[in-house]
Each structure stands twice: as structure tokens, then as C-alpha cells.
Design a protein around this nucleic acid. Structure first.
Lengths: 158, 158
DNA sequence: ACCTGAACACCGTTCAAGT
DNA sequence: ACCTGAACACCGTTCAAGT
């Protein structure tokens, strides 16, 4: 997990993971079908650690919750970009990506409804929100820029 | 160029490009420093073919111009996703990506100003617009969904 | 200037064999 | 059930040698 988060998917070889685990390279295949399967395992751990922290902020302002979400997954380095780049090569990754996308979108929908939007409009707004979040995760930003963009986006939406 | 567009960066080996060109694999290195350099060459060709078509629609409605832009680069398959996944590995790709980003953002800024926004706000709106476009390019959508999302986004922004 | 065969140092993955 | 050494089929890239 540390290696994937530090170096990303491609630069992390199965051999290096094996070495860090103190086993032979092919031993990994006893536990995971392939490298993408291992990536999914890392992603799931990451989600299980990050999401509770976001959900716990239930009565914080919307802007801060969104920033928290971004902050959590930004700390996992290029893993989110890696997911996108593996989507077309691996069905496991594609399925994980779709479910993750639905989760964030669903979370956004309920937040936007809570903020006063009508359900019909909230669906499309949530989609926009997800793309903005992805954009912020995919590109380097200063803290100020992030805050600025999120506040501006939410200002336009709600 | 055909191979990259059809199969994407990773699945297109230097050997297969060489075979298609009727030369030995290492001959490519006489013309391009490495695989990322070759990718950039393909991307530049793609931009030079796509952008004029977008710029030519100068007096078409904004929605249609954005949809045209998306349509053009969607036809280059997963190349835009590939760019993002190579950004952290290759400086050439990172530079290209940054310039491309600036171009689309600059285009959006001037469009939004033309639509009546003030320059200060247009800058941030353009950023949002770019992320929405990237999101639409990165994920599969039906034509209707694309139209819906773009119209909704522009409705919120201008 | 342009192209090649052969090699290098990797890579993810498989398989038969061990305990 | 769990782990291994050895091999397989690739990969991008380099280098010395050809014309």
C-alpha cells in the first residue's frame, strides 16, 4: 500500500512489493489474481480509511466537507489517476471505478438536496461537482486555489 | 497515429508501430527520442487537425462549440486519459499537457467574456468548464447525456 | 544520414515442485 | 495451504555495425 501510494501503479513492480513483504515475487499471486487486483485491494483500504472521516463531518459546511474529501484522496498520490488509466485495461478496475463514481455522485446529490436543491436538478449538479472534484485531484493546486475553485463551484451550483 | 488512437498508449508497442511502418523497432529512435516523444508527435497532429474545426465555428452557439471540441478529442480514443497517466512519468508529456490545458482554458475564458461575463469571474468559470470537459472526455456518455451536461453547465455559468 | 541485428535490463505472470 | 526457483513472453531502449 505504501509503495503504491508513493510511487503510483506503474512504477511499483510486483517484485518490489514482494521484496517489501519479504516473499518471492510469485507468492503475491497466491493472494491476488494479478496486479490490478492488488491495486483494488489498496484502493478499498484507502476508501475505508478516508470515507468515515468525510461522513463524520455531517454538520460542517458543505465547502469544508468537499475540501476534506479532496484532501483525503489527494494524499493517496496519483492513485486516482492510475485508476482512470487502468479502466480500459482491466474489468476489475472498471467495476471499482464505476462504483466509486456512483458513491461520490450519490453523496453529492444528497448534499445538494440538503442544501435546498430540487432532486431533478441536484442529479446534474452532482455530476458537475464530481467532475470538478476529479479535476482538482488530477491536477496540482495550491491550497488557496482549491478553496477558491470549490467555493466558486458551490456558489454557482447552490 | 492510427495504432495509438485505436489501442491507446500502453497497448501500442514500439515494435507494432515499427512493423506498421515497415522498419526495425529501433529505427523509430532515429526520429523520436522515446515512446513519450512519439506520443507527443501524435497529439500535436491531433490538435492541429481538431482545433481549426472548433475555431471555424466562431459564430455558432457556445454549447455547440463545446460539444464540437469534445467530439473532436473523443474521437482520439483514450489518448487524453493516456496523457494524464504519463504526466507524472515524462517531462515532455507534462509540458505538453500544461500547454494544452492553458489553451483550452484561454479559449473558455474568451468565450465566457464574449458571453457577457466579467474577466475576473470568467477565469474561475473557465477552470470549471475545463474540468467538466475533461470529465466528459474521461468517462463514457451517450450523446444525449453529453448535451444535457454541457447545457446544464453553461446554464449555471453564464 | 538512415537503418539494422543483437543484446540489455526489465516487466507481469505461469508452472511444476517443494513443505 | 502456502511458498519457491526457474522459466516464458513480452517490453522500451541501447549500441556497435552496416550502407
Amino acid at each position: 500500500m505504501a509503495l503504491f501510494k508513493e510511487q503510483g501503479y506503474e512504477k511499483t513492480s510486483m517484485s518490489s512489493v514482494a521484496k517489501a513483504a519479504g516473499v518471492a515475487a510469485n507468492t503475491i499471486y497466491w493472494y491476488y489474481a494479478n496486479k490490478d487486483d492488488l491495486l483494488i485491494a489498496v484502493l478499498n483500504r484507502e476508501v475505508m480509511q478516508a470515507m468515515p472521516q468525510v461522513i463524520a463531518m455531517q454538520n460542517a459546511p458543505l465547502t469544508e466537507r468537499v475540501l476534506k474529501l479532496i484532501e483525503q484522496f489527494e494524499s493517496s498520490g496519483s492513485l486516482m489517476t492510475d485508476v482512470h488509466s487502468r479502466v480500459s485495461h482491466s474489468e476489475v478496475v472498471r467495476n471499482w471505478h464505476d462504483r466509486f463514481h456512483q458513491m461520490v455522485e450519490q453523496l453529492s446529490v444528497s448534499e445538494l438536496i440538503k442544501a435546498g436543491l430540487e432532486p431533478a436538478a441536484a442529479q446534474l449538479d452532482a455530476r458537475l461537482m464530481v467532475y470538478v472534484i476529479e479535476g482538482l485531484l488530477a491536477h496540482p493546486h495550491t491550497m488557496e486555489e482549491r478553496v477558491q475553485v470549490v467555493e466558486h463551484a458551490l456558489g454557482k451550483l447552490v
